[in-house]
Design a protein around this nucleic acid. Structure first.
Length: 578
RNA sequence: GCGGCGGUCGUCUAGCCUGGACUAGGACGCCGGCCUGCCAAGCCGGAGGUCCCGGGUUCAAAUCCCGGCCGCCGCACCA
């Protein structure tokens, strides 16, 4: 650590109001941070930029929804979080190390203890006198630890609720209706921005690892068999280059490679082009936050590192001064896992019907049951038996018949003449299937931190936050050149009032003009408008560029227009006034 | 959760080892006044501190001891 940027950012953030630890007056609670006035604006701007890249640019097939933070138990049973997110843990009473109880038993005794309760695991450990594998000390009772925050819905204690650990389940649960509202068209991206909670064991690293944080995420639903239309804008990003390290490379100690997204898809490094597409969009978004491409990389997670729902995951990493590469987004191929689970747990059919361009004629074998024969033979049991026969596999039955074997149902012999296999032609107008899902998911607080870190500059012992202009929490500062000159102050306040309606603006007339520029630079205000004596004569003001310190003089009536071009179009001041 | 280091005005810190003269000092910031014709200028005045919290030792604790909380680092953990 040459210069500790993390400390500098943390100190600045507290002092000027970007962020600080929550519940400070009570000593703070690890893993929770407040956003201050500047942080709240910065977050809003980052979220808005995300929305622009992921939602607005894809408005024809991406929508945004909002779902609750608290969900009932069954949702997290379906999602697998309750089961997979809970670990049975034993602690060594001597050295304090913690172990997975099930792993420990399986390793030492070679028996499978999957699905046993903590009490049963404790019993096994006691009976076999298992001790700490590191120091040999005695082991505690088995406890479970689950990263889900638990709560209670309503006054009934049994009615458990959980705080969502990701946004995804909200979109999956609301998928059916959202699709209906969007007139049943695929592909469909359902985006959401919101808070999630994860009860981390020991959160640290400031804004990087929190117990409660904001995610901007999209579940992108598509037809895995429709290669052509699954990803309509793929061509726009396919030549974008990414730096990527695969799981294999990691295992072999290899290094990242640079290649285009399309090459990565062709070579099978990225399993699906839809996954690749949103990785491309994600990288462009991070670049727009002011992160140079050289500080961005994708890392494939190895199977043991992946979440239970994912068949391939890439993390997008950004290099930060203190911890090296830090994950800012996750890109998972979730397949149809989640929808199939919710189908099972809710009993709702979540399949999508997709009509073929032309109906297909399909030949199909069908079981024909002679109901008269069955009815006469089995009387009141007949209808049950008929439905059971019809649920059998026609090919199987055909085999039985050709082999002259008996068909037995519920211990009853079905006469062969009652069953006939015929081939029918059916008109199929479309297919039903569970869409597949790719998921880009961003942690917004981490983005706030990396934006600040990459904006941090020092010049002549002063701090300048070169936050990209369109992201800056406050866009314009307005100063009278001299606070003791009433006419200047009045004029400056007048201009402040006009600019207020268009931008986030700060008015400041305390101290010398240089000090005010410095204060503005430190919180990343890109433009400073100064009212001077010339203003009083000809209604012109100067605009100073935070980064170059150059000034241009513009007419007051052009001010809003010039500032808009400077801030939102990112043009140099000299070019705008020319 | 274990181990290491740390926690003092808004911020950064001095003091802690060696307990008492500490009414806890400084710098920057902040507020008020003067000054100020473009990059943290100067002068004057002011506000601001549960010395992280609790307990103990002592005549006496910011200072020593114990416990807790919080922060960072390492281990473990982190779908």
């Amino acid at each position: 650590m040459v210069e500790d940027l993390f400390n500098k950012i943390t100190e600045l953030a507290k002092r000027r109001g970007f962020f600080w630890p929550s519940y400070e007056i009570y000593g703070g609670i690890a893993g929770f941070y407040d956003l201050g006035p500047l942080g709240a604006y910065l977050k809003k701007n980052i979220v808005e930029l995300w929305r622009k890249h992921f939602v607005l640019e894809h408005q024809d097939y991406v929508v945004e929804i909002e779902t609750p933070i608290v969900g009932p138990k069954i949702v997290y049973q379906a999602s697998g979080h309750l089961e997979k997110f809970t670990d049975p843990i034993v602690e060594c009473m001597k050295c304090g190390r913690k172990f997975r109880a099930d792993h420990l038993i399986e390793e030492k005794l070679g028996i499978n203890v999957e699905g046993l309760s903590p009490e049963e695991l404790t019993k096994i450990i006691k009976e076999n006198n298992l001790t700490c594998p590191v120091c040999g000390g005695p082991l505690s009772e088995v406890k479970t630890f689950n990263l889900l925050f638990k709560t209670q819905i309503g006054p009934y204690e049994g009615n458990l609720g959980f705080i969502r650990p990701e946004l995804a389940q909200g979109m999956f649960v609301a998928f059916k209706r959202t699709l209906e509202v969007m007139r049943n068209k695929l592909p469909l991206g359902i985006a959401q921005i919101g808070k999630v909670g994860r009860n981390e064991i020991s959160p640290r690293q400031g804004m990087i690892r929190l117990r409660e944080f904001t995610i901007a995420e999209m579940e992108y639903f598509f037809d895995p068999e429709d290669e052509e239309n699954s990803c309509p804008d793929y061509n726009k990003v396919k030549f974008d280059e990414i730096k990527v390290i695969t799981c294999n490379d990691k295992r072999k100690g290899g290094s990242p490679q640079i290649l285009s997204l399309d090459e990565a898809v062709q070579k099978g490094i990225i399993v699906h082009k839809c996954l690749a597409y949103w990785m491309g969009v994600a990288q462009r978004f991070v670049e727009a936050l002011g992160i140079p491409k050289s500080s961005i990389m994708f890392e494939e997670k190895c199977p043991e590192e992946r979440a239970h729902y994912s068949s391939q995951t890439f993390d997008q990493l950004v290099k930060v001064s203190r911890w090296g590469w830090v994950e800012v987004s996750g890109h998972s191929y979730r397949g149809s896992y989640d929808l199939s689970r919710h189908e099972k747990f809710s009993g709702e059919e979540l399949e999508v019907f997709k009509p073929f361009k032309e109906p297909k004629i399909v030949k199909r074998k069908k079981i024909l049951v002679n109901k008269a024969v069955i009815g006469r033979m089995f009387k009141e049991k007949a209808s049950e038996i008929i439905s059971k026969i019809q649920n059998l596999d026609p090919d199987e039955i055909e085999k039985f018949i050709s082999l002259n074997k008996d068909i037995i149902i519920d211990n009853l012999k079905i006469p062969k003449e009652a069953i006939k296999i015929i081939e029918v032609e059916e008109k199929v107008t479309g297919k039903k299937f569970l869409p597949h899902v790719v998921e880009p998911s961003f942690g917004i607080e981490r983005l706030i931190y990396v934006v600040l870190e990459y904006s941090y500059k020092e010049k002549d012992g002063r701090v300048i936050m070169s936050i990209p202009r369109y992201l800056a929490p406050i866009k314009v500062a307005v100063f009278p050149l001299n606070e003791s000159e009433k006419r200047l102050v009045e004029k400056a306040r007048e201009i402040f009032d006009i600019l207020k309606r268009e931008f986030e603006v700060m008015y400041d007339d305390r101290g010398s003009i240089g000090r005010r520029y410095a204060r503005a630079d430190e919180i990343g205000i890109p433009a400073a408008v100064t009212v001077d004596y010339e203003t009083l004569e000809d209604n012109t003001v100067t605009i100073r560029d935070r980064d170059t310190w150059k000034q241009v003089r513009v007419r007051e009536k052009d001010l809003v227009d010039v500032l808009k071009k400077f801030i939102y179009k990112n043009l140099p001041l000299e070019d705008i006034v020319r």
